[in-house]
Simulated scan of single mutants.
Amino acid sequence: MPDPSRDLAERLYGTPPDRFVAARDAAVAEARRAGDPATAREIAKLRRPTVAAWLVNLLAIRRPELVADLADLAEALRTAQRDLRGPKLRELSAQRRAVVAALVAEARTLAADTEGAPPAGRLPLAEVESTLNAALADTGVAAQVRSGRLLRSTSYAGFGEVPRPQLRLLTGGAAEPSTGKPSTAEPPAGKPSAGKTRTGERPGRAGPRERAEQAGHRTDRAEQADRAARARAAERAERAERAERAERAKQRRALERELAKARTDQDRAETELIGATTAERDAADALTAIEAELAELERRRAGAEQEVSRRKLARRTAERAATAARRRTGEVEGALEALLAEEGAAGTGDDTAD
């Protein structure tokens, strides 16, 4: 079945736990609307993380370079433990405490910048710290931390890496695993055991031949101890050189990552600057065009206002003329009616006289 996309998983596991279920259900519904029921079922299987696990997931999602540094430190710690390098181990342990404290502080900052996150006083930062320490000791936990899908916090109560390195006892010969049990080996052939004597010799006294053999044995043991000491010194020097090379390689990788990030940030900033400059120029051009249009509209408005005034004056003049004409028409009609009335009266009188 298809797994949810990385972007979707990061979005869900970067969501505060109180909002995880709602965001997951919305993603399931969206997958179903898109006609992808298999993906919808896989999304529905995702489980809500605890607050501490969510904080660790924020680090893996938003600060993966810091989590990568944690993995490098874990490898250096394991190397120092395997090589039994006390001073280097103490130095790395101090570095571990500083790195874990910085990661916890970064998790608190990321939570403060996330909408819907719990208040700072309720963040389980101690659980975050124990989980990061467990990731330094356990490669399985480290893988879960890097995945950004951690569901709950964890801790490691042991010492050193998991599994612990097997300690070895270095002798003049080949190195053998130390089991912590008393040795039951028989003394080498040709060497008498303590408390035993050769046949015919009295206990507590040795003849010239035995004394010579004992002196030879002591010389052999001294030579073996000297060779073992030189071998141990050479091995320590070789381990120190390997550790120094590993440290330099780690520093180089860290600087290369920092340089790559700085270049990426610079490219992004340069791109944003170009875009902002272009947008500013376009906005200025648009403002100039609007101002020109506004000036033209103002000019046209003034002309229109003058035209309205002229038309208003002409209307008033026409109204006065119409009023005068109506009044004149009424006067003429009245005069005509009077004249007609007079003519009618005169005609009636003439008819009566006849």
Rank of each mutant, 00 (worst) to 15 (best):
T139I: 06
E307Q: 11
L170A: 11
G180I: 09
E293I: 01
T323W: 07
R48S: 13
T184S: 07
A26C: 00
V21W: 00
T15M: 09
A29P: 01
T199E: 10
G330C: 00
R221T: 06
H217I: 01
G158S: 07
S178M: 09
I43G: 02
T352M: 13
T277V: 08
L125I: 09
P64G: 05
R263Y: 05
G216S: 12
R218N: 04
A143T: 13
P203L: 09
V141W: 01
R248F: 02
R19Q: 14
A60Y: 02
K191M: 15
G195V: 07
G275F: 07
R48D: 02
Q81M: 04
D138S: 12
A34W: 09
D72P: 06
D72T: 15
A338I: 04
A228D: 06
R221N: 10
A111W: 09
E298H: 08
E161N: 05
T277C: 03
S153W: 15
L70E: 11
A175T: 14
T179R: 12
R268Q: 15
E291N: 10
A318T: 06
A321M: 05
L59Y: 05
S183F: 04
G190Y: 05
R326S: 08
P119K: 15
E186Y: 06
R85H: 09
P119Q: 14
D282V: 01
E201Y: 07
L136R: 05
Q266R: 08
G173Q: 10
L297E: 12
R257H: 13
A80L: 01
A71V: 11
E270M: 09
E256Q: 15
L46W: 04
A94P: 03
G158Y: 06
G330T: 11
A318S: 05
G160P: 01
A322T: 08
T197E: 07
T171V: 01
L167M: 08
L339S: 12
E241P: 03
A215D: 11
E296I: 02
P124S: 11
A304T: 13
D3R: 07
R236K: 12
F20I: 08
E75M: 09
A233S: 09
V51M: 03
G216C: 02
T277D: 07
D83P: 01
T197C: 04
R33Y: 00
G204H: 02
R299C: 01
R326W: 00
A249S: 15
A231W: 02
E244Q: 14
E75I: 02
A228F: 01
E319V: 04
D72Y: 10
V162K: 13
P182C: 03
A206F: 02
E270P: 02
R245Q: 07
V308H: 14
A324P: 01
T317M: 04
T352H: 14
G303C: 00
R78V: 03
R253D: 15
L103S: 02
A321H: 13
L167F: 09
A135T: 08
A314G: 00
L77Y: 03
G35V: 00
R33D: 09
A112K: 08
Q251Y: 12
A206R: 09
A52P: 02
D25C: 03
R146E: 10
R268E: 15
G14V: 02
A126R: 15
A101E: 13
K261S: 12
K181L: 12
L297F: 14
D83I: 00
A29D: 08
G334S: 07
R263V: 12
